[in-house]
Every structure is written in structure tokens, then in C-alpha cells.
Design a protein around this nucleic acid. Structure first.
Lengths: 244, 244
DNA sequence: CGGCGCCTTGAGAGTAATCAACGATAGTGG
DNA sequence: CCACTATCGTTGATTACTCTCAAGGCGCCG
């Protein structure tokens, strides 16, 4: 039962499992008191022990790990509709930190309340499990990116992936979406230096593949980008095939 | 209740949650009819739809993704005691393939039977969930490896990780364990060419860090290796902190 | 206006890839 | 028992992708 909504959490989960009006209402209620978080703020620090679930309603954040050398590796992005650490098993301390990239609107929910919601709303639980599986598959895809794609291919792949995810929550249209990442973020995601990120982006613009104005990304030639990156959205659009 | 056993599955899960004698018996029973699989055989192919859970009792295998160019990226290793796709949500088709590296002894169990076991043995389920979380954390650690470590550091980190995992199932002693990987496998894991893997290994031997004879890896100076790799075993040795 | 954050550019260095042989080892069949 | 073959490891030479260092530009905000 699709219900029109501008709540990205509901929008995302509806894409993963059928939600009843009651499911939707519960999700609306639990996200009704989000709070604004500034850009570049750590929501969860490594070894943090507070025990909340964060639901992103607006904005942009990332999970990252930091080396003693200071080098930082971003290991995933959190977009509107994403739930940070859905699983009962995802207890702190985490092995990584979570940090906003843009000003974000985030609902912070005691884990217990979230788990209760999952117990009372099995379809939400099912969608959450699927979301978690997609996250794992995405991480593996990033491994392929880092392990065996050139800088250009990696960048193309990342942009295709982000655009697809943004579309799924209604934030992208016509290959265009807001993207608050700075070049250093891209470098920390793809294992490239800032300088090289800059040059690769220039190359992509020169090739007529993308356009970045302000904090907006536009994919000018998605077929060519997808081919270049060997991108297929399959891993992001899993559907429940049956219930176990 | 620790029970002496040479079943690596039991050994591993006992390290993650307390198992009763009944739990152990059930695990013994379900792994009582393993079959031998040759080295370099695909157990699960990408887009495979058969629905089994594989439990590795002996041997060595990997999950990998293959690019159209033929390039292959190994995304994780499966060691004795590992259960392939423990979760009810891990339904096929997978986004990757699973392939043995050495001749392996593998129990193939219909998913339904495995899920029933989990339902009847909550401690086993708890341990499995923890195992899955560890797998996810390991994948993120690999991302850090590929994204921001040099070839030498990566190799050191991988060796520390494998040694720790082998120890956990009683297959390593005194920094020595069997390692059936060939140099090409290491390359496909770390995103390096065969030639470079070879040179890095030589460098590590020259530095007195490791010794590889036959299919055996020996870490000669673990403190230095761990320091070089910034390795901490924390992410591999999670303990249940409480039950949710 | 000054400072700061971010982007851009240039030059030089270095790590790792590629190409091409060659060597070692083990299993196979005559 | 010994060629024979295949797989894996090793080496050298060359190329190229990416990094580092350094400096300058541009726009925004106090």
C-alpha cells in the first residue's frame, strides 16, 4: 500500500517491503521530533557507548574510520531515509565514527524504542533487514571500486550509485541531485588525493559526463557513465523475493 | 560451557556466545555429513538461486566479484568455522560468487534446516549474528586497507588478520598457520598486480617479518607487523556485551 | 578588507602496473 | 624413470598513474 509521503524513511522502506497504514503511522510518529545537526559534526564517535538509533531525514553524513596517521577512510554514506545501525546486534562501541557532511535533520531514538517498533511492525523489520543487506552489498561494491577500478571509473561508479540512492528517496530528478561533498570527501572515499580528485573531475567535465555547480551534481550522460563504471543498480534495488 | 572439540564451527561460535551441550550437539549433528570440495571450485556462482547454507569445516575459500574485464576482487575469506550467509535475509541471488581456494570440507545445509536450528538454539543465533557483524566490520577494515594503506601495510594487515582468525579456530600456533593462497589471490585481495605482490613479499621476508614455506605462513615478528599495519584484533574478537 | 575554506595548477617524485622472460616445482604419461 | 606440461614464483625493463609539495585563485563571511 503506497502512501504519498515526503518522509524519506517511509519512502525508502516502502521500496523494500509493503507497509501498512499502521506501519507508516508508527514510522511517522517515531520520526516526528528530529533535531538539526550542523555540518561536520560527529554524531557517533569511535568507541562511543551511547545507544541510539539515528534516522536521517534530511542532509548527508558518512561513516568513516581514521588511521593514526590522520588518514581518513569513508566507508559509507548516510542519506535521507537511512537508519544508522538498525540491528539489535549493532550495539556500541562501533568500529567507526559517523559524521555529518551537510547540515542534517536527524531523529535520535533510543535503541529499545526502535526495536519495539520492529517487533510490532514485521514489515518494517523486513524492510530494515533488506536495507542492511543492501548496505553490505554496497560495501562489497566499494571494495571492487577501490581494488580494481581506475580513478575515473571509481568516480563514475560512485556518482551513479549516489544518484540512484537519491532517486529512491525522491531527491534526484533528471540525473540531478544535491551533493554536499567537497573534493576532499571524494578523495577519502575513493582513496585518492585531493589533487587527483580535482583532475579526475575536470576530466569528467571535459568528457561531457558530469556538471557540478554549487553543491549540485548533474549526470549529463548516464548511459556512458554507467558503461564506464560497469554500474548496475541491481545491488541497490533488492526486492523481497519471499519471506523466510 | 566450553566443550573440548575439534569442530571449528563449534570452536568459533563458543568464542562468540556461551553454548549449551544441547547447542553443541545440534551443531555437531548438522555438520556430521560434510562433503569434500576440490580446490578452485565455485560453490556459489553469482546469481545462483539454489538456497543452501554452507559451513566450512576444513579448507579455505573466498567470496569474490568479477568485472567484465576479467579482473577479480576477493571481498572476504571463508575459513574453517565460517558459515556462509547465515541470515534469513541472505537469500540468493547473491551479488558475488564463492569459490574454494584449497580442497575443503563443507557441510551443505538447506537454509530451512539452518534457520530451524537458529530458532531452537538462541545462543547459536546470537553467536551467528555476532559473526555476521564481525564480517561487516572486517569488510570495512578491508576498505581502509585498500583505500589508505601502502602495499606493504596492507599485506601486513591481511596477514595479521588471517593469523588471528586461524588462531580462533585452533589452526594457528606460534604465529604459524597454513595458508593456501597463491600470490595471485593476494593480488586480487589487495588490488595489486602479481608482480608487485611478489616484490612486497620479498621485502617482508628481507625485513624479517614473515616466512612462507610451502603453503605455510609464519609471522616472525608480530609486534612489528601489527605496528606496521596498525593492526588491532578488536574488530575480530567482539564479545556479546548484553542481550537485546 | 582580511581570513578562511575550497578549488585549481604546475612540477617532480614514487609507487605500482605492464610486458616479457625465465626459473622452479609438481603432477602426468610414456 | 624421465621427458613433458602446467602452475606458480621470480626478475628486469619500461611505463603510467597517482602522490606530494608548493603556490595561487576564488568566493564567502565576519
Amino acid at each position: 500500500m503506497e502512501v504519498a509521503t515526503d518522509n524519506p524513511l517511509i519512502q525508502k522502506l516502502q521500496g523494500l517491503a509493503p507497509l501498512s497504514a499502521l506501519d507508516v503511522a508508527a514510522l511517522k510518529k517515531i520520526t516526528s521530533q528530529p533535531r538539526l545537526v550542523q555540518a561536520r559534526m560527529d554524531l557517533i564517535e569511535e568507541d562511543d557507548v551511547s545507544d541510539n538509533v539515528f534516522i536521517f531525514l534530511e542532509g548527508f553524513a558518512c561513516r568513516y574510520k581514521q588511521r593514526r596517521t590522520g588518514a581518513r577512510q569513508i566507508v559509507s554514506y548516510l542519506l535521507p531515509g537511512d537508519v544508522c545501525d538498525v540491528d539489535p546486534i549493532d550495539l556500541p562501541p562501533l568500529d567507526h565514527a559517523v559524521c555529518t557532511i551537510a547540515t542534517s535533520n536527524v531523529a535520535r531514538i533510543p535503541r529499545r524504542a526502535w526495536i519495539e517498533l520492529l517487533q510490532e511492525h514485521p514489515h518494517v523489520a523486513q524492510a530494515s533487514r533488506l536495507a542492511k543487506r543492501i548496505e553490505a552489498e554496497t560495501t562489497r561494491m566499494w571494495l571492487v571500486n577501490l581494488g580494481c577500478r581506475s580513478a575515473l571509473e571509481q568516480m563514475a561508479h560512485l556518482f551513479c550509485e549516489l544518484m540512484t540512492r537519491m532517486e529512491a528517496v525522491g531527491l534526484a530528478r533528471d540525473g540531478t541531485c544535491p551533493l554536499p561533498l567537497i573534493q576532499a570527501d571524494l578523495g577519502q572515499t575513493l582513496g585518492l588525493s585531493n589533487v587527483h580528485v580535482n583532475r579526475v573531475l575536470q576530466e569528467m567535465r571535459r568528457l561531457g559526463l558530469i556538471e557540478c555547480k554549487g553543491k549540485t551534481l548533474r549526470l549529463l550522460d548516464q548511459p556512458r557513465l554507467r558503461h564506464l563504471a560497469e554500474f548496475s543498480a541491481d545491488y541497490l534495488q533488492l526486492r523481497p523475493r519471499r519471506t523466510v
